[in-house]
Design a protein around this nucleic acid. Structure first.
Lengths: 338, 338
DNA sequence: TGACCAAACGTAACCGCTTACATTTCTTTC
DNA sequence: GAAAGAAATGTAAGCGGTTACGTTTGGTCA
């Protein structure tokens, strides 16, 4: 009688089907190597025993897992959701499984997750943004785990990336706003430490100011975590400043949604009393009132291309090639011309 | 010279430190068993080689992974985000790592993910809702993998659960609306196939109608995927019906946000021309205008308790005990009294 | 019918750890 | 200082697969 208190192994299947373990392994991994007759017998045995090959054993013997790990800063809001979904779908199409962890924007946690995923045998890793200790890249290098960075484009970085130029995008959006007559700019940024996206978006605003004859140093961005409540508080703080801004540029749509709430709280009309911009163009941007003028990021394309590239790197054992995707301004109702 | 083309193993460390592999293993897993002096020597070796124990090997030898798997229907919207975040935080506190997959509301995909996570050695699984083939529960049983269900409470189900009574909650919300004078009810539901939450919420509406002397059979809910665009379309369809509803009850906040958009599209005022309710009380509910009257679900508490319970089941090798959390009505601006 | 070769299948080593058990080293006690 | 017992360390089996290599089977052809 088979031991039902423990999961069936390949030995059990082999015994049940009256073949060797090698044959069982073959019908699982390369069925053509086996006669139709025995193949069917083995498959029947697998079926009746409810056998699932043990991943760890498999990985140890074969060194492949067909698993990709992704570590995103947060799942709490939808910033990465759509891109990740597309990433996952493309991976699935290519026979890979995606494992996701979130780091809560903490680099220590991210490092832990990276080691964890690597130790688990992830064939490749998707990371968000470039800002992290060199030591991590060294570690990944030593372990020969291909890494691809998304949501950021920077050819000087240590890893290949599929993303967009956060700085240039923010500059474009800001110049657009300035050209509509705005002179008193204020900004609510995400926390820029260990976050190149946040950092570069601030730089982008300053670039635009400089290019349009405004003093970049006069921008004094407030940095807060990416959530609505903090965005709201930051907005209120900004309005209380000596020179009241005519436009508040936000590091992303979530912050902008918070800013809109802040305006409501202060009985200010958007965009009549103050203009507000977002970044990302997630669903939220079209849910708030007024709808947000924002920077559209090609989330799905980015996710899909990232999957293709990462799988390519793994299977062809080659270096990744970076791609600069285009983000574009979406003009909606939250900004008005002065 | 050590082979740098491949990751260092415990043997490399043992050699470097001049001890046996057993000793290395001990300093990693139970440092007290080893002299301070040798411990330091081993740790130094680990450091210089950049050694990370191989998970698979570890799992094979020890049968434990300190990993929990969670499979959620979607990451695209925030329905599960907050609860999952709390779940993850609590797990982290207890020394476990969370691996997340999403099934896109497809039961075949979910089954695949379950097998995958189990084969990967997940010590336990968190699943959403009860609706799935008995075969899956049997499989999990055979593999001795503890399972906990969240977001749903049902003691007749095959698995223990930490959740709330979707049916009773929806009934309460609906009765509240009826008591405000509404008689012509309509509903936009999520797809109810293989989704007990959606199914029970429909039932809840009917319960309320019956209890308040309305004809439950007259409710003809439209079932659509949980996203804004589909909610919007469903709303438009509903309004075009012979008897125009005075209130549209939505299966969740995402659908309700869509409904609000639909009303806007038709130039209808909410709640003056039509009332709308949501379910879940995710952040979105307070972002849309008017703010949604909805059913508040204790996401964070649910996630945290789920983590505690699941870890308890694993470590104490006991059956899980279900908990019925309380969801409560939040009255905001999207419903008016007639 | 027998020789030859390809296809099918089996044997066993190996992947990198943990741990039961065996051995060595160190303390303690008289 | 020797014996006994405890603490520290080492040895090697085993976890469940894959796969190189060896053996058997079966078909083809002279």
């Amino acid at each position: 009688m088979p031991d039902t208190t423990t999961a069936p192994t390949i030995d059990d299947v082999a015994r049940e089907a009256g073949v060797s373990t090698a044959t069982v392994s073959r019908v699982i991994n390369d069925p053509d190597l086996v006669t139709v007759k025995t193949r069917e017998r083995v498959q029947a045995a697998i079926e009746t025993l409810g056998y699932t090959p043990n991943f760890a054993a498999r990985f140890m013997a074969a060194k492949r897992t067909f698993t990709i790990g992704a570590i995103i800063p947060t799942m709490e809001n939808a910033i990465f959701a759509r891109g990740l979904q597309a990433f996952q779908e493309e991976l699935h199409r290519r026979g890979y499984t995606l494992l996701v962890s979130s780091s809560a924007y903490k680099s220590k946690v991210e490092e832990e997750q990276i080691r964890n995923l690597v130790a688990r045998g992830a064939d490749g890793l998707l990371l968000i943004g470039h800002d992290r200790d060199q030591a991590i890249y060294d570690y990944l290098d030593r372990q020969h785990v291909p890494v691809l960075v998304a949501w950021s484009y920077d050819t000087n970085a240590h890893a290949p990336c599929i993303g967009f130029d956060n700085r240039a995008a923010m500059q474009a959006l800001t110049e657009d706003v300035i050209k509509m007559g705005h002179r008193r700019l204020a900004m609510i940024s995400g926390v820029s430490e260990q976050n190149d996206r946040a950092r570069l978006r601030i730089a982008g605003v300053r670039d635009a100011m400089a290019a349009q004859g405004l003093d970049p140093a006069s921008l004094d961005p407030i940095e807060v975590p990416y959530n609505i409540a903090d965005g709201q508080a930051a907005f209120v703080e900004l309005i209380a400043r000596e020179t009241k801004p005519s436009v508040v540029l936000c590091g992303n749509d979530v912050l902008a949604a918070g800013a809109i709430r802040g305006a409501e709280q202060l009985n200010m009309k958007v965009p009549d009393d103050v203009s507000i911009t977002g970044f990302d163009d997630i669903e939220l941007a079209q849910v708030v009132r007024p709808e947000l003028t924002t920077m559209h990021v090609p989330h799905r394309a980015m996710g899909q291309m990232a999957a293709q590239e990462l799988v390519g790197m793994i299977e062809e054992k080659r270096k990744g090639v970076s791609q600069n995707l285009k983000a574009s301004i979406v003009r909606r109702a939250s900004v008005r011309a002065l």
